[in-house]
Design a protein around this nucleic acid. Structure first.
Length: 980
RNA sequence: GGUCUAGUGGCGGAAUUGGUAUACGCGCAGCACUUAAAAUGCUGUUUGCCGAAAGGCGAUUGUGGGUUCGAGUCCCACCUAGACCACCA
């Protein structure tokens, strides 16, 4: 008997499959149902394939192979995303043309991919750097230009000083360049932009109609960052009364517009803040008395890189604009204007209203610079010790809670109640015509007799909700916290009726706890007394807010915005965190942007018949120090004629980012050789959308979002047939090294797929990649684990060889249709159960359990070897189930059974279980007492409760169990539970 | 700081989606085969107590509560780890 030798059989079958071109071919317009499965194409770096790549790719191959066997016309393509920096850097370092470096890398990748035995349709292979491909990338870019979605703008961009390249926000990770890790800084440059923000709502809406993992949807939603709020205009005027008479006419008023999601806090706004880079700062700095100081601050901010701005999160800085003030439009209050770098220039309007009482950042800033803090939202506190009782009516009351401190005693004045087990602060209702302070002063004397005290601090307002037991009502107490200091011990006599209710006690500071003092708002008051106040950022009840007092935050937002709107000083608006996509790169190795700059006609698109705009050969691929692309140095390429007027013009020298080619490659796979259009519409209609798109989590907010944007735009202009490009997205978790750290060259913990294939074979490698754990979770590599899988394949092989030797050569298809004549029901049932389990795991994307299901089945078959010599069907089914995962071994075994056609030829259909076959006459059900396991018992399938009860009583072990049961829970074919 | 995901034996993990927790694999131990080893096969392997054994009784899915006849699974709070975002007003 020959031994399992993957090193021999794997290259053999790869060769045979390659010579059978129709085996894995996707057929356009085939009558079979289509299935389009795709993994993210590789960036052909010099390092080669990574075990992480195999995870997703193997899943796709399993799907592709299984779907073909199940009767689908499968499109499973491969391609290369080969433009971009790593190849360019590699080429510069090795002094070679990036195209040559790229071709070398691709050759290497192809070899690796082929050694894994993937069933890709190689006739559809694409390469984004092929002019036949990037012609259409350029053509599609011009559609964006044509519709005003590609535009040029001078803007401060994230700049990587090392790569000498502008970075999109998405490429800046922790303030550093995504590729090289250098700290990014800001630089003002003319950039090509794609208006992805115009599709923000469509991209959000589209998520509702696709099957993506919830975390992917969430990440995209958060990235788009839609927030509904209000824009508010703050009028800016001169601080002094003698304003310039010219600017007095109303059309000439200056405004700063801000965006807020918390307009309900507007009455608490005590200053506004402008971003240093904002246009407002630019305009206003010349109208103030401390221009120099402000300019100095702006320059300092510019010098700071992103990372510094982030590290300094704790310490906020800013400069006040002297000589001008802003007017709060809701109450006419005059407030300060500051410039501070905690406000971002390119979100919202680049200016914010600051409400220190209700925003953490504003609070920290106001504390540092001594700016007034005004409460405008009262927290709603439910008193947990006596929460409101359902059904009782609510009574609202305005009241004071007074805390009196005696510095001589170093104690706090409280009242101990006589009829209730309470100690409280001095508290009472606010009477008609009183303000809270007067009310507090009155209550102190009435209840304690003390006469001489002074107000130290207003602690603020809360709304406390509790059940007032002595009156049996639910109380809504609008509480005013007030803090007094006792000046001396002089007292009046306290009225008898007060004395009858409570007595005065003095309490230490550390005894003021929720255990000792009955006070719903205690924490708030103490925080203020200790001067450890924090911003209250939750929703609550509007206070100190004029006509809006008493509204909830939600109501307040609506009402205040409406009022502002009616006065032309504000409106409801929607803002997004997502910015437009910076689409130009100052590099060589990318698609040239097909635009010509004419002095007369401005930006003119290169006509379609002149596409592609080919990358010219250059001497030097390094970016220039000015930040211009190396293309700028080739004057005879740059200088051209205007396609419109024929006059002298210059070519655009920026190239497109790496993301361009990958934004539409799923369309090109469908029609990769077309030189008339980017893809034939009828073919797109047949194949789109991609049924399953496998890729990494790291592309969620980059490539995945970008390509959805491209496709949605193409749909809108009638180029593609589906709104969304991908019906289902699956994302694999990363594979860590055995030490649990990320695999990296420097740590020396990299597992190389080629080594694995040499040692264990492609089949074992593929199977272990699946067996390692749930595919969407991150896992650590285990070199012992792959040995286990390899052993399993050996078992399958040895078992197969034994059976094949004893089986007459026969067509397996015939064998499979034969039934188990001797009624070997156990074997038959086990086989059908395995098929069921396997198919369910496959449909549920639980690839790790696929392997364990087959392991169990193999272990079982080994115990039934003798029967298999006569009835090899179960073993053949095992091989069919194994074949998508481990195609080589399956094919070899298949042929040793005398089959002349490939197991993947389409002749052998995918196993389906027969529900009739797994129906059993008896089922084992669980016996429980109060939910605790007491044993199990075999009963006829589908028995009803009374029958099971009878069986139970007749079984000596459980005979007395039903006695005294209050209730019997019976779940058919599963359990019976006696509740006592 | 925010959002999300996860926490089950010595380890990777399984659990029909609320119904016999610890499948499968790794590791470990023992046995068989062998002069020997490798390979292979078989047996055992969550844990405490009782028992010579067959077996029996109990505990157990990060911690603490809750819902339920019944919770690894659902709800609340906390702890821990990871991922993504991060001064987004």
């Amino acid at each position: 008997m020959n031994k399992y030798n993957p090193q021999e059989i794997e290259p053999k079958w790869q060769g045979v499959w390659e010579k059978t071109p129709d085996l894995y071919k996707a057929v356009d317009f085939d009558k079979k149902p289509k299935h389009y499965v795709m993994f993210e194409f590789n960036y052909p770096s010099g390092v080669g394939l990574h075990v992480g790549h195999l995870r997703g790719q193997t899943i796709c191959d399993i799907i592709a192979r299984q779907k073909r066997m199940a009767g689908y016309n499968v499109l499973f393509p491969i391609g290369w995303d080969a433009f971009g920096l790593p190849v360019e850097n590699f080429a510069i370092k090795n002094k070679m043309h990036p195209a040559i470096a790229s071709a070398q890398n691709i050759t290497n990748f192809v070899k690796q991919e082929k050694s894994l035995g993937y069933s890709v349709d190689w006739s559809r292979e694409i390469d984004t750097t092929d002019p036949k491909y990037y012609k259409w990338t350029q053509w599609l870019f011009l559609r964006f230009f044509e519709h005003g979605l590609a535009y040029k703008k001078k803007m401060p961009i994230n700049w990587c000083p090392s790569c000498k390249i502008g970075l999109a926000n998405e490429e800046v990770i922790d303030g550093k360049c995504e590729r090289c890790g250098t700290e990014s800084s800001k630089k003002g440059m003319e950039q090509w932009m794609l208006k992805i923000t115009a599709y923000a709502d469509k991209l959000l809406e589209g998520l509702k109609h696709v099957d993506y993992p919830e975390r992917v949807k969430l990440a995209q939603e958060n990235w788009i960052g839609r927030s509904e709020g209000t824009s508010i205009k703050f009028q800016i005027t001169n601080n002094k009364l003698q304003t310039n008479s010219k600017s007095q006419n109303s059309n000439d008023k200056k405004y700063v517009e801000v965006f807020t999601t918390r307009v309900d806090t507007l009455y608490g706004c005590t200053y506004i803040v402008l971003a240093p880079e904002s246009q407002y700062t630019e305009e206003l700095k010349n109208h103030i008395s401390n221009t120099e100081k402000v300019e100095k601050y702006i320059n300092e901010t510019k010098k700071k890189s992103n990372i510094e701005r982030m590290v300094e999160e704790k310490e906020k800085t800013g400069v006040k604009l002297e000589g001008i003030i802003a007017v709060n439009p809701i109450n006419g209050r005059e407030i300060e204007i500051w410039v501070a770098d905690y406000v971002i220039a390119d979100y919202g309007t680049g200016a914010v209203m600051a409400v220190p009482a209700h925003d953490d950042r504003d609070f920290a800033f106001a504390k540092k610079y001594g700016i007034e803090i005004i409460q405008s939202i009262a927290p709603i506190v439910t008193y947990q010790k006596t929460p409101p009782v359902e059904g009782l009516k609510y009574e609202e009351r305005n009241m004071v809670e007074v805390i009196v401190y005696d510095p001589k005693k170093d104690k706090y004045l409280c009242l101990k109640w006589k009829k209730q087990p309470w100690t409280t602060f001095i508290t009472g209702g606010i009477e008609e015509g009183e303000d809270p302070i007067q009310s507090a002063e009155r209550e102190i004397t009435e209840e304690t007799g003390y006469k001489n005290f002074k107000l130290k601090k207003v602690l603020g307002k809360t709304r406390a909700i509790f059940h007032a037991a002595h009156k049996n009502v639910n109380r809504i107490a609008n509480a005013n916290g007030l803090f007094f200091e006792l000046l001396n011990d002089e007292r009046e006599t306290v009225a008898d009726e007060e004395n009858a209710i409570h007595e005065v006690v003095w309490v230490d500071r550390d005894e003021l706890t929720t255990d000792n003092i009955v006070c719903a708002s205690l924490d708030y008051w103490l925080r203020e007394i200790d001067d450890k106040g924090i911003a209250f950022t939750d929703y609550g009840i509007l206070v100190n807010s004029g006509e809006f007092n008493g509204l909830t935050s939600e109501e307040g937002k609506k009402k205040i915005t409406e009022k502002l709107k009616s006065e032309g000083l504000g409106d409801f608006v929607v803002n997004y965190k997502m910015r437009d996509w910076i689409f130009s790169r100052q590099h060589y190795w990318g698609e040239p942007i097909p635009i010509v700059n004419c002095e007369k006609d401005g930006l003119v698109p290169v006509p379609e018949d002149q596409l592609p705009v080919l990358l010219p050969d250059v001497e030097n691929y390094e970016p220039t120090d000015t930040g211009e692309s190396p293309l700028a140095a080739i004057t005879d390429w740059v200088n051209t004629t205007c396609p419109k007027c024929g006059g002298p013009a210059k070519r655009e020298t920026d190239t497109m980012p790496n993301w361009a080619g990958s934004s539409w490659y799923f369309l090109r796979y469908i029609d990769p050789k077309n030189d008339k259009v980017f893809a034939d519409f009828e073919k797109l209609k047949y194949w789109m959308p991609v049924d399953i798109y496998e890729g990494g989590m790291e592309h969620t907010t980059l490539h995945l979002l970008y390509s959805r944007f491209w496709n949605e735009f193409f749909y809108d202009i009638g180029l593609v047939p589906t709104k969304e490009p991908y019906a289902k997205r699956i994302a694999h978790g990363i594979i860590l090294a055995e030490d649990g750290k990320k695999m990296s060259k420097s740590l020396g913990n990299v597992i190389n797929p080629t080594d694995l294939i040499e040692k264990y074979g492609a089949d074992a490698t593929r199977a272990y990649e699946m067996f390692i754990g749930p595919f969407d979770q991150q896992v650590a590599w285990d070199s012992k684990g792959i040995e286990g899988v390899s052993r399993f394949l050996n078992k399958v092989w040895n078992l197969g060889m034994e059976i094949a030797e004893r089986t007459e050569n026969a067509d397996s298809q015939k064998l499979l249709t034969q039934s188990f004549e001797i009624g070997e029901t156990e074997l038959e049932v086990a086989t059908h159960k395995t098929i069921k389990k396997f198919n369910e795991a496959l449909e549920g994307f639980r690839y790790n359990t696929l392997i364990s299901t087959l392991m169990e089945f193999t272990n079982y078959l080994q115990t039934k070897k003798d029967l298999l010599y006569t009835y090899p069907q179960p073993y053949l089914i095992l091989i069919l189930l194994l074949s998508p995962i481990c195609p080589h071994i399956a094919e070899e075994i298949w042929q040793s059974f005398g089959n002349e056609e490939s197991i993947f030829s389409g002749k052998y259909s995918w196993p389906r279980h027969d529900p009739e076959k797994i129906k059993e006459d008896f089922v084992s059900i669980i016996i429980q007492e109060n939910g605790k396991l007491r044993g199990n018992i075999d009963v006829p399938a589908d028995s009803d409760e009374s029958a099971v009860l009878e069986i139970c009583k007749n079984s000596p072990k459980f005979t007395s169990l039903p006695d005294g049961a209050k209730k019997v829970v019976y779940v058919k074919n599963r359990l019976i539970n006696f509740v006592k």
